[in-house]
Simulated scan of single mutants.
Amino acid sequence: MVSAHWASAGNRLSEARERALGSLADDVANWQDWYRRSVVADALEALHESATAHRSGR
């Protein structure tokens, strides 16, 4: 979550800042998707290989 805070109520982001925050949110979502697909999958694969090797006595 990304938020903006002001000392007084009623303020809004400019269109440019709103677009910039939207772009940042897109970048973060893409990074999270990549991380979940690659890093987590790699860790699960390594765990599986380790368990399989241990079970077969390697």
Results as ranks from 00 to 15, higher is better:
3 S>N: 11
4 A>Q: 04
4 A>R: 06
5 H>F: 13
9 A>S: 11
9 A>N: 02
9 A>L: 00
10 G>W: 10
11 N>D: 09
11 N>E: 00
11 N>M: 10
11 N>A: 11
12 R>S: 10
14 S>H: 03
15 E>H: 13
17 R>M: 13
17 R>W: 15
18 E>R: 06
18 E>M: 11
19 R>W: 15
20 A>E: 09
21 L>G: 06
22 G>P: 08
23 S>D: 03
25 A>V: 10
25 A>L: 09
25 A>R: 10
26 D>F: 15
29 A>T: 01
30 N>V: 10
30 N>Q: 03
31 W>R: 03
32 Q>Y: 09
34 W>S: 03
34 W>L: 04
36 R>E: 13
36 R>L: 11
39 V>G: 00
40 V>T: 06
41 A>D: 07
41 A>T: 10
42 D>Q: 01
42 D>C: 00
42 D>R: 01
43 A>R: 05
43 A>H: 04
43 A>G: 06
43 A>M: 07
46 A>K: 08
47 L>V: 05
47 L>S: 11
47 L>N: 11
49 E>K: 00
50 S>E: 02
51 A>S: 01
51 A>T: 08
51 A>M: 01
51 A>W: 06
52 T>E: 09
53 A>E: 06
53 A>I: 01
53 A>M: 01
53 A>G: 07
54 H>P: 07
55 R>K: 13
57 G>N: 04
57 G>V: 03
